[in-house]
Structures are given as C-alpha cells and as structure tokens.
Simulated scan of single mutants.
Amino acid sequence: MLFVPADSERKLAKSVESEADVLILDLEDSVADSRKAGARGSAAAFIGAQAATLASRLFVRINQLDTALAMDDLAVVVIRGLAGILLPKIRSAADIVHLGHCLDVLEARAGIVPGTIRIVPVATETPQAILGMQSFSTPLPRLAGLTWGAEDLSTAVCAVSNREEDGADSPLYTLANSLCLCAAAAAGVPAIDTLHADFRDAAGLEAACRVSRRRGFRGRIAIHPDQVATINAAYSPTEAELAHARRIVDAFAAQPEAGTLSIDGQMVDKPHLTQAVRTLGLAA
C-alpha cells in the first residue's frame, strides 16, 4: 500500500506506474493544513480520471475522524472509483462503524453501490486503541484489513523514541505489532505491517519484510515508490514454498481421511493443510 501525497501533482502522476496493490492518496500527515482543501480537490480529480483503470486500487487517507477535516475530506473524495478509506488514529472498532454509517449516506449521494467502499484503519496510533483492540474480535462490515503505526503512538505517550538504544522496538510497539496481528485474524482480514521509514535502506526493508511475513503479516505500507518491488517480492511465496504447499495439498487430496501425513520427512496435519491452501491462494 503506497502513500502518495494528494497535494503533489507530480507524485500523483508518477503513482500510476507503480506496481503497488493500493495507492493511498494522503490527505493527513503529509499535507499541510493550508494545502488540505486543494489536496482534496486533487485527490478527487485523480480518482475520477483513473476510475476506469485503477478503481480497485484507489484509497484515501482522510484526517482523524473526530475532526471537521475528516467530514470535509469525505464530502469531496467519496465518488465513483474510490475503493477505500485508510482511517488514522482510531480509538476502537466503533470508529469503523461510525465511518461506515457516513459512507452509507455518501455512497447513496454518489450513486455508488452500498458497501462498495472498504476501510483499513491504522489500529494502534492512540493509547485508547491499544487498550481497545479486543473490539475487533468479530468481523465488521467494510473492514478490509488492519495496519498499525508507532510514530503517533510515541507522541501520544510522550516517548523520546519508539526504539531502545540498541535499535530494537520498545516493548509497547512490539505489543502494538502483535495486537494488530491478533485483531486482524479475529476480524478475518489481512494484517498489513507498518512503514519502514528509511526508504533508502533496501536491505533493511527486505529483512524486515521477511520477518514480518513469517509472523503473519500479508503486506506492508510503502512511503516511496522504490520500496514497492522489495515489498512485493518479500511477501510473495517462493517457488520452494509453493512446491511444498502443492505436495501437502496433493497428499491430503489423495488420502482425504488421513489426519496426519509425512511430507518431505516431516509430519503434517490439518493446520499445515490450511496454511498450504493459503500459500497457494496468495500465489494465485
């Protein structure tokens, strides 16, 4: 999911060439208050112009929901071609429900099929959100995924940094990462990892992505176009993983009543079959 500042005509134009699965037209942190009105117009114009070719990929990050800015954002950008909203600084799943009600009205106004526009919240940017992550314990209408963030959470708790002196994540942010994974699984949606701030550090990004994928994340936020190829490769199954998954699926298909089987010298059971099917699904 690639962030694109909505007030930059140059970056908007360049984003069309990106291989990111989602383009997030940003109206929040990357846009100064004095430029937000113009950015809304630019985002809407871009969505309208690209609706035919990029409709399933166009999201907008609006401003915080409990501000007038958010309502102003939604009034302009909810048009045909908008696929979703990235919602920052939530407090609980109740904010998803609230935004959903707003979208019900705005979709009707725009002649959009009800429920079309999806929501991905940044689920850990406030202390209230951390304390309320259990609110994602069941599926929610419109929810398409969960991501998390550390920078705004650091500010909220008055932390000097979100890292320890050795560079490791501080415990609060390790917790936020884990809660995002669990909440996404409980809600039945993909978990999307947070950004890798040093966009020039391709090796560090690749290493972080591989750790992230092993833990269960299905993708990552990108803040620069050069990060997209690394992210796409890191979260895609390797040929060896696909071959192993096919062997598991084929073996259980040949012996549908078996509870456990031996594959490549290891015992596998139904959870391994579930994971194998999921791996093949990612490749498809």
Rank of each mutant, 00 (worst) to 15 (best):
Y235L: 13
A110K: 02
E206F: 03
R215T: 04
A123W: 00
S135W: 00
E206C: 11
A123D: 01
I90R: 07
I79R: 15
A168Y: 04
D26R: 10
V77C: 09
I24L: 14
S178T: 15
L273S: 02
D95L: 04
S262T: 07
P121E: 08
P127N: 05
L58F: 03
V77G: 10
W148D: 00
V31N: 11
R214E: 07
I223M: 05
G216Q: 08
A284C: 05
K36S: 00
P171Q: 09
G84E: 06
L179R: 15
T260G: 13
L103K: 02
T53F: 04
G100I: 02
M71E: 01
L282D: 07
V113Q: 14
T230P: 04
I192P: 13
A229R: 04
E19N: 14
T238Q: 14
L2G: 01
R200M: 10
L205R: 03
H196R: 12
I263E: 05
A150Y: 01
A156T: 03
A55P: 00
P121Y: 06
T53C: 12
S178I: 09
T194V: 15
L12Q: 06
E241N: 06
D201L: 10
C102E: 12
P114C: 05
T274M: 12
V268N: 06
G188N: 14
A32E: 13
K270C: 08
A283D: 04
L58Q: 11
E151V: 10
A191T: 10
P141A: 10
T194A: 15
P171W: 03
D26E: 14
R109S: 10
D152F: 03
P237Y: 12
G84N: 07
T274S: 13
E257C: 07
E257F: 09
E257G: 11
R91W: 00
R10D: 06
F46R: 05
I263Y: 04
A39E: 00
C102T: 05
L69T: 06
L65P: 03
S34N: 09
T116V: 03
G84Y: 02
I263A: 06
A75R: 14
L242K: 11
A6R: 08
G259I: 01
G48S: 14
S170P: 00
D193L: 13
R213C: 04
A251N: 07
R163C: 06
T194N: 13
V4I: 12
R163N: 07
Q255I: 00
G111H: 03
E125M: 02
A156K: 08
A39V: 11
R35A: 13
A159D: 10
A168I: 04
L282Q: 12
L146M: 07
G115D: 02
Q64M: 01
G281W: 01
